[in-house]
């Protein structure tokens, strides 16, 4: 945040375009670099959600899977909100086999 950013906010001016350019580039390059089409990414998102939904109750609509990139390294980032019950505990599912799997904490 710079003085100019604050001034722009106060005057309700548009955000400086360099920020917009940087954000748009980061997004488009993450996709360019992996060669994953939006369709494939969406299919992968759904399959990942299905797998996770076997173990914990998640909000299928809220779950987001995206590509983020930094220093020519691209990461697949999944943000999957896990539903909680009335007491606030994470809602895990009864597993069919007896392996003890620790549900991961929400980030």
């Amino acid at each position: 945040m710079t003085l100019r950013d604050i001034l722009n906010k106060l005057l309700r001016r548009q955000e400086a375009s360099a920020n917009t350019a940087r954000e748009r580039l980061q997004l488009v390059l993450a996709h360019d670099r992996t060669d994953l089409s939006p369709d494939l990414l969406d299919q992968m998102r759904r399959e990942i959600l299905e797998v996770v939904a076997k173990y914990v109750e998640i909000d299928i609509e809220e779950g987001a899977v995206s590509l983020e990139t930094e220093d020519r390294m691209t990461a697949l980032v999944a943000n999957l909100p896990i539903k909680r019950d009335a007491s606030g505990a994470l809602r895990t599912k009864e597993l069919t086999d007896d392996s003890e799997s620790e549900p991961s904490k929400e980030n």
């Binding site: 375009s17 390059l29 220093d71």
Partner: peptide, 18 residues
Amino acid sequence: MIASQEMLSIDDVTDILA
């Protein structure tokens, strides 16, 4: 233009392209 933040800065470009 860089000073008025209407152009990608040197760091922006070198960071993005690494």
